[in-house]
């Protein structure tokens, strides 16, 4: 909650680092962290969703393979896809949040080419016309 507090516009790096440390310390850390982050990224409050995306990207850089394999599952990718789809949370999420979610998924197709589910999810978004160009 502190790391994604929408009333504070600056990133709270100390909190974000503590969050990453907790993710790394717990056996089920990546699973629980991604559930929490999905919920925050789906927030209709733009500031909260954008902070959560920053936390997610920091975890990707600092939490290693256990985190990568969990985020590359359809379980989490579907939660990101819901933010982009007008059938789910897309009507409440801002364009800024949606474009960052798209950027995140695209960057993972480049950084994790071996993760087939990420490629599948991105191809599906393109096929459905949600990601253009």
């Amino acid at each position: 909650d502190e790391a994604t507090d929408p009333s504070i516009s600056e990133e709270n790096w100390e909190c974000i680092q503590r969050f990453c440390a907790q993710v790394n310390a717990a056996a089920e850390g990546p699973l629980f962290a991604l559930r929490l982050l999905a919920h925050k990224i789906q927030s209709p409050q733009e500031g909260e969703a954008l902070h959560a995306l920053t936390v997610l990207e920091t975890c990707v850089n600092n939490c290693g393979e256990r985190f990568h394999s969990e985020m590359a599952k359809f379980r989490f990718l579907n939660e990101l896809i819901k933010v982009l789809s007008p059938k789910y949370y897309g009507i409440w999420s801002s364009e800024k949040v949606k474009s960052r979610v798209t950027e995140v998924i695209f960057s993972w197709t480049v950084w994790f080419p071996q993760e087939v589910k990420i490629q599948d999810a991105y191809q599906m978004l393109k096929k459905q016309g949600i990601v253009k160009g």
């Binding site: 359809f74 990718l77 579907n78 896809i81 819901k82 789809s85 589910k117």
Partner: peptide
């Protein structure tokens, strides 16, 4: 202290 964790994944959402 062992906990059961279902590792099965969902399907890709159809949107």
């Amino acid at each position: 202290t062992a906990s059961f964790h279902d590792d099965s994944d969902e399907d890709l959402l159809n949107i």
